[in-house]
Design a protein around this nucleic acid. Structure first.
Length: 464
RNA sequence: GGCACCAUAGCCAAGCGGUAAGGCAGAGGUCUGCAAAACCUCUAUUCUCCGGUUCAAAUCCGGAUGGUGCCUCCA
């Protein structure tokens, strides 16, 4: 039985699905107007861990991940420009081209990170009719009203507003520094549908003329379509708690009159050098950035796994280096376990296995689980340990089966360096170590390191 | 100003009332012409501080200090 921390109740709860043996799960996905940065990616690794853990508990999954390619209001609250449109204007491409490009890169990124793709990928622009239908229902039930620029949700009609974040409407208003839209009945009312200006590129016909959907309605409409009125899990980043998820709850429950999501799971933020990471501060990194600096995407995954998902994770390159080394040694050790013909006693194996499972079942305590893996590989070499590690890897997703040699990137050795290496080998054979050492220095000056191993001389590019 | 969360070795980090997991770095060793890599061993009487509860506290309570996030789009 797995326990998960539910933001709604603020405690760990035993997970029990609506439908026996099945888990219905909705995860807030990317807005595809830019590359995903490592902070975004941490949240998807978190989503992936939930999925893997539930799978290992024997559940079948029906997961939905949305791709927001429209309707994401930006800056200055509801008066802002759509992010897709902004990117589109800046990059001189159609919004559809932008969305396509960035979602392709997104899927490449998550693949590199061993993030399993949810069963259903839902693009917002493919679900405009469902969203319109949803808004129509809200208007009919009296939860929404029309203004000159759109349809708004009337928060005063939904007394339960704020249950997720624990903030009252008053708190939100008191702290709000937003311009008050005079036509809105309550400053916290949010847009369900926006009426488009004539030149707006992305617009659809609706009962209120041409326009485009608000962001929050997207998730409500699509989750209802694929998962029904009541489903098990909704995941996302902590930043979504106060506004986005609160709004989703308001929309959902206004229509159904009951709780629609049983478990709200939120992943904490990533910091960079101790502070906030954001596109506006320019301290975001992408997977490509990390790869260019010589890290494997899985080094980053390992780095994320080393901290619990509900704790802030401070990203530094020192920490990433540590993750890289740990992971490489782990792989090396496993390779020698694999090569062994020895056995490990079933008692030891069972002990390790049950501690690992217990760690995962306790609200995905992956850092503890990783520790157990490291404890396991310290056992005397045996193929059983290797097999056990592969079992663990179904949850960790670190590709522990991969050949260690795959870690070392291939590179082309300049002919000049190749000659020097050969000369050094000869010098060594003649026991002229002074010459050999000076040749090593020369090779180093050209940017390469030589190392003598049992299998001969290995040449690698020098770091940095 | 309001609301949260966090504080464990040089760094990262688990621990959730019973006497400090694990990783990186560091030290010593094996190996090596020397290095590097790899492997083995060691490395917090103590958990920001001050009170309190308890037979027992890193763990619970109160207070102080420090840090971070949110309150505006954001994973």
């Amino acid at each position: 039985m797995i326990k998960l921390y539910n933001t709604l109740t603020r405690k760990k709860q035993e997970f029990s699905p609506v439908k026996d043996g099945w888990v219905s799960m909705y995860s807030c996905g990317p807005t595809v107007y830019n590359y995903a940065h490592i902070g975004n990616l941490r949240t998807y690794i978190f989503m992936d861990l939930i999925r893997r853990a539930l799978k290992s508990e024997g559940y079948k999954l029906k997961g939905v991940l949305n791709i927001t390619d429209v309707g994401h209001l930006m800056a200055d609250s509801d008066d802002g420009e759509d992010k897709m449109l902004k990117a589109s204007r800046e990059q001189q491409k159609t919004p559809w081209q932008i969305a396509n490009h960035y979602s392709n890169v997104f899927f490449e990124d998550i693949k590199k990170l061993n993030i399993s793709k949810p069963e259903i990928i839902a693009k917002a622009t493919d679900h405009i009719p469902e969203m319109i239908e949803y808004v129509v229902e809200l208007v009919e039930k009296g939860y929404a009203y029309e203004t000159s620029d759109g349809i708004y949700f009337d928060i005063s009609k939904f007394p339960g507003y704020g249950s997720l974040s624990g903030a009252s409407i008053e708190d939100n208003i008191a702290g709000a520094r937003v311009e008050v839209n005079s036509e809105k009945r309550n400053p916290a009312d949010f847009a369900l549908w926006k009426k488009a200006e004539p030149l707006h590129i992305m617009q659809w016909d609706s009962p209120w003329g041409k326009g485009y959907p608000g962001w929050h309605i997207e998730c409500s409409a699509m989750s209802r379509k694929y998962l029904g009125k009541v489903f098990d899990i909704h995941s996302g980043g902590v930043d979504h708690i106060p506004i986005h998820h609160e709004n989703e709850i308001a929309q959902n429950e206004a229509l159904t009159g009951k709780r629609t999501v049983n478990y709200w799971l939120h992943g904490e933020f990533m910091l960079v050098d101790g502070g906030k990471m954001s596109k506006s501060l320019g301290n975001t990194y992408t997977i490509k950035d990390l790869e260019e600096r010589g890290y494997s995407p899985l080094d980053f995954r390992f780095f994320c796994l080393n901290t619990h998902y509900r704790k802030k994770l401070n990203f530094t390159f020192t920490a990433l280096d540590s993750a890289k080394v740990s992971r490489e040694r782990l792989m090396q050790q496993l390779a020698s376990h694999k090569a062994s013909t020895q056995k490990t006693s079933p008692e030891i194996l069972d002990g390790l296995r049950s501690s690992f499972v217990a760690a995962i079942q306790d609200d995905l305590n992956v850092p503890l689980a990783l520790g157990i893996l490291f404890t396991a590989i310290k056992e005397s070499k045996s193929q059983d340990i290797y097999t056990l590690a592969l079992e663990f890897d179904k949850i960790l997703g670190l590709s522990l089966t991969s050949d260690t040699s795959a870690i070392t990137e291939s590179f082309v050795l300049p002919a000049q360096v190749e000659i020097l290496v050969a000369e050094r080998t000869t010098a060594k054979k003649n026991r002229d170590f002074a010459l050999a050492d000076s040749l090593r220095e020369e090779i180093a000056r050209l940017g390469y390191a030589v190392a003598d191993t049992k299998d001969g001389t290995r040449v690698t590019p020098l770091q940095k």
